[in-house]
Nucleic acid binder design. Structure first.
Length: 479
RNA sequence: CGGGGUGUAGCGCAGUUGGUAGCGCGCCUGGUUCGGGACUAGGAAGCCGUGGGUUCAAAUCCCGCCACUCCGACCA
């Protein structure tokens, strides 16, 4: 093993040696996050925040294109408000942080820091909704929320995390259901077209659905190690929350009615999904759409006449059609190569004296490390093309990993054997009984990921109890 | 909340049978370098996680606490 190779390996734990450690290494060494003094609260560093920012910009555009408006709600929820919907409070009470003092005075009523804002939105809807003409109200907010998790990991499970939460109310159940599915599709499209992460769309079982929801829909992504990551959820509430919070409107028939409601969210967890889907031994690999820098320019022998100037000229040119970083630090080129690979920049452009003589540069793809010599006259076509190819390859690799790790089973013995040998999705039929779901958890360690929209008929009976099967379920270990 | 691991310089670590701290990387200042983590000379930097105890003497032994981390249970 060469000296350079050894150093690279020391920097980041090999992905197949210890995936959890690899993940932590990438988060820290790619300078995405730092730990803060409060356990479980992460600091998003500039590079990590830039990724999140790109995610938010794209999604925000998608939300607005479908008629949603951004709002900002308070950070505090009075206890009485949180308790209005029974299932909801039961689901969230164990993990909320409470504020009991204001200054030096104990509060009459304690308030929690929002773990999610359904209650706040409902309270507000009750104030502003009067007529069917006010509907639909399609709101979204970008904010952070707090859930007092017991064990925490950067991006995947932090006590405070950043997200968006959409909250909408509609005149009819059908409109709300359509909205729920539309937003789920928005998430799926975003993951597949921008993050290059293939997802399985489906419905959560009752056991796994959101506290207070009538139905929860999910997109499930599979990580490099075969574990599942719930990457976005969209909930249909029916009129349960409306009734609990007295949200009413006068309908077309002049009768008071309860609106039908949805909520949906994705979080900074998506950054974790990107890391664990695309990364490799050298570190992060970022999909071009959300990479803070899509191209890094590394001048070689920058002190030689003309090199620095040429590099700046290229940076200005490339900057017109891609996010570009010109690394003028006095680190050696080799150091820069490794550094920017670790940070996942999709494309590296090397420019040195030899290139300038030949009116060319070297373009290196992060995913394959393939080098191409490109004429300086062709940058405007070559760079976008390579970025597109890289993106397509990331998606393809992730899809292949998922397919290689998805198995069908018709008996419990098969399920147990598959689960013992590998991480991945195991699909089986299911009777719909929660007892079987719990058995799967206790005996095999698998949770139901979803009942996918794309159903297959694998057998007639539930492998767990032998009763007639109702639906096909994806099972897996999840983050 | 259960089980494991780790706390010594910014990071990674060493520190023997107790004797008051060292290595590599990084950092700062020069010089030479520059196409895969350069070389060299000099330099700065540590209440040894924290509180107690044992001892003439504790990074080292004993007890408590705290933090981080990994694996489970719970969750976006």
């Amino acid at each position: 093993m060469s000296e350079q190779k050894k150093k690279l390996v020391e920097a980041i734990t090999p992905i197949n040696e210890d995936f959890a450690q690899w993940y932590t290494d990438v988060c820290l060494k790619a300078e995405l996050v730092d730990y803060s003094t409060v356990k479980g609260c992460m600091i998003l560093r500039p590079y990590g925040y830039a990724i999140w920012e790109n995610i938010t910009h794209i999604l925000d555009g998608m939300f607005k294109a479908t008629g949603h408006e951004n709002v900002a709600m308070p950070i505090f929820i009075p206890e009485s408000l949180l308790q209005r919907e029974k299932d909801h409070v039961e689901g969230f009470a164990p993990e909320v942080a409470w504020v009991t003092y204001g200054g030096n005075e104990k509060l009459e009523e304690r308030m929690c820091v929002r773990p999610t804002s359904e209650t706040l939105f409902c309270d507000h809807f009750a104030h502003v909704l009067h007529s069917w003409r006010d509907l639909p109200m399609k709101y979204n907010q970008w904010c952070s929320v707090v859930r007092w998790e017991k064990t925490t990991r950067p991006f995947l499970r932090s006590r405070e995390f950043w997200w968006q939460e959409g909250h909408t109310i509609h005149e009819t159940a059908q409109e709300a259901i359509d909205e729920t599915l539309q937003q789920l599709n928005t998430y799926a499209d975003f993951c597949e077209k921008y993050l290059m992460i293939p997802v399985v769309k489906g419905k959560k079982t009752d056991k796994e659905k959101f506290a207070g929801a009538e139905a929860t829909y999910t997109i499930e992504a599979m990580m490099h190690d075969g574990k599942a990551l719930q990457s976005g959820t969209s909930h249909y509430f029916g009129d349960g929350f409306s009734r609990a919070f007295d949200v009413q409107f006068t309908g077309r028939d002049n009768q008071l009615q309860y609106p039908h409601q949805t909520s949906w969210g994705v979080s900074t967890r998506l950054v974790g999904a990107i890391i664990m889907t695309h990364g490799d031994d050298e570190g992060l690999i970022l999909p071009p759409a959300i990479a803070p820098y899509q191209v890094v320019i590394v001048p070689v022998a920058a002190h030689k006449p003309g090199v620095a100037e040429k590099a700046e000229e290229l940076a200005a040119r490339v900057g017109k059609f891609a996010r570009v970083k010109l690394d003028t630090s006095d680190n050696s080129p080799g150091w820069k190569f490794s550094q920017w690979e670790m940070k996942g920049v999709p494309l590296r452009l090397e420019i040195g004296p030899k290139d300038i003589e030949k009116n060319q540069c070297v373009l290196v793809r992060r995913d394959t490390r393939e080098k191409t010599f490109v004429s300086l006259d062709e940058l405007e076509t070559a760079i976008p093309r390579l970025l597109e190819e890289l993106a397509a390859n990331l998606y393809q690799r992730a899809l292949e990993n998922r397919e290689a790790r998805t198995w069908a089973a018709t008996t419990m013995d098969q399920v147990k054997q598959l689960a013992a040998e590998n991480n991945g999705y195991i699909k089986t039929m299911w009777c719909g009984d929660e007892a079987c779901e719990e058995k799967m958890k206790e005996e095999v360690g698998l949770s139901s990921r979803c009942m996918p929209f794309e159903q297959e008929h694998l057998s007639d009976v539930c492998p767990c109890c032998g009763k007639p099967a109702k639906v096909m379920v994806y099972w897996g270990k999840a983050y």
